[in-house]
């Protein structure tokens, strides 16, 4: 009963993720993917990481889900033979194996020094980490994003056909 809220969010997100992959119409898949992203941001709100949750909402729901939906609308609904059941079985089996190994590993996780009095979130820690500790990484990420925007525009631009 203690874990009611995270389990409920997890069930919601898992159903959304499976629907995203298995929905017969692609647009419904894209909608469920957006719901999955929103479910992840609910997780971050539950974990008291508000900046991460808001960032997830803005980037994933506000940008990536819209981009994906736009692409789905351009590409259209031509679904071919997909969704093989044996692979679903394989996925379930793999999940059971992984979870089983984790359940055995819980002994280890239980002995980890988990913070009993969880530190509360503050922006100073985060900004110190982003700007000073990982400052170089931030610059690399900025270059990567610029390059990817440039590359995406170059790829998707329709070239004028000269005759």
């Amino acid at each position: 009963m203690d874990y009611l809220i995270p389990v409920a969010i997890a069930v919601f997100s898992a159903v959304a993720a499976i629907l995203a992959l298995e929905a017969r119409r692609m647009v419904y898949g894209a909608i469920s993917l957006a719901l999955f992203f929103a479910g992840l941001s609910l997780f971050f709100f539950y974990l008291d990481l508000p900046y991460l949750a808001v960032f997830q909402l803005i980037v994933y729901v506000g940008a990536i889900a819209v981009l994906i939906m736009f692409t789905v609308m351009i590409v259209g609904e031509k679904e071919t033979k997909e969704g093989r059941l044996s692979l679903l079985l394989l996925g379930v089996l793999g999940f059971i194996t992984i979870v089983g190994s984790f359940v055995f590993a819980i002994e280890y996780f239980s002995s980890l020094p988990v913070a009993q009095t969880a530190p509360s979130f503050n922006f100073i820690d985060l900004s110190k980490a982003v700007v000073s500790q990982y400052g170089l990484l931030l610059i690399v990420l900025a270059c990567l994003l610029t390059a990817s925007a440039y590359g995406a525009i170059t790829l998707a631009r329709r070239e004028e056909v000269q005759k």
């Binding site: 508000p50 808001v54 909402l57 803005i58 729901v61 506000g62 819209v66 939906m69 609308m73």
Partner: peptide, 18 residues
């Protein structure tokens, strides 16, 4: 963190319009 959340919730609107 109301300011952050306000502008994050606005991000849903383009999705609904689309």
């Amino acid at each position: 963190y109301g300011v952050l959340l306000f502008f994050a919730l606005l991000a849903f609107f383009p999705l609904v319009v689309l």
